[in-house]
């Protein structure tokens, strides 16, 4: 499918309706040129290759499908993903994997600010750095960062767990470094293997919620 010849709407209608009928298992998308909403809302056992840079919300709401962006991704790549895999070969802009419920998002380069904001079960593996406010209010799932993290990492975390190999500029409210268990090392090792990143899982720090913001504390006088 050549996006210089067909519209994003036509492409997505094909991916949603005609693909399954035709039994197609692989779709190649050329000339994405930063268009928004490429391959959103997929619900099929298909692999999709986007040959170039994608705009906002690429592969958003993905279910089952495996989407690879052979370039950079704009804001909100794989936002609200349910399952399947989304891989970005370049860098990803803000809010990558936001509110993702499941599946795996792999970003080979850096991810910008607010990566994994409000994630709800997705696994995110970033080969480079993540920007500030990443994993803000993250509820479930895992984030593995092979590079460094910016300010306020994991502010107001719930049950999601973050693993960072490099430096963390600052932790957000109620996020704390905790001891890596054997279970953590195995989990990180499995995710690194899945992403194809050759790092030792033992080099990562575990960041999780200190659970001091979990319950309303009338004595805290709003001094959090």
């Amino acid at each position: 499918m050549d996006l210089s010849k067909v519209s994003v709407r036509e492409l997505n209608q094909y991916l949603h309706h005609d693909l399954a009928k035709a039994g197609v298992k692989h779709v190649n998308i050329t000339n994405p040129d930063g268009a928004h909403n490429i391959a959103v809302g997929l619900d099929a056992d298909v692999s999709v290759d986007i040959q170039g840079h994608a705009g906002y919300y690429a592969a958003g709401m993905n279910k089952t499908a495996n989407v690879t962006i052979h370039g950079n991704a704009g804001t909100g790549v794989a936002e609200n993903m349910m399952s399947g895999t989304v891989r970005v070969k370049g860098f990803a802009s803000a809010s990558a994997g936001a509110t993702g419920h499941g599946g795996t998002l792999i970003i080979e380069g850096d991810a910008s600010l607010r990566c994994g904001i409000s994630m709800k079960g997705i696994d995110i593996v970033v080969g480079g750095d993540v920007g500030s406010y990443s994993a803000f209010m993250a509820q479930a799932g895992n984030m593995v960062v092979c590079g460094n993290a910016g300010d306020a990492l994991g502010d107001s975390l719930y049950e999601a767990v973050l693993y960072v190999r490099g430096e963390i500029r600052s932790l957000g409210a109620d996020a704390e470094e905790q001891k890596m268990t054997e279970q953590d090392i195995k989990k990180v090792g499995d995710l690194l293997k899945k992403a194809g990143f050759d790092y030792n899982a033992k080099e990562f720090k575990r960041i999780a919620s200190a659970k001091k913001l979990y319950h309303w504390n009338a004595d805290a006088k709003q001094e959090y």
């Binding site: 040129d33 930063g34 928004h36 840079h53 705009g55 906002y56 950079n72 370049g90």
Partner: peptide, 17 residues
């Protein structure tokens, strides 16, 4: 956004950040 850069000459070989 990148979509405004896509038509520039030699953009495929440009260094992007």
């Amino acid at each position: 956004e990148f979509r405004s850069l896509a038509q520039l000459p030699d953009i495929k070989n440009a260094s992007l950040f």
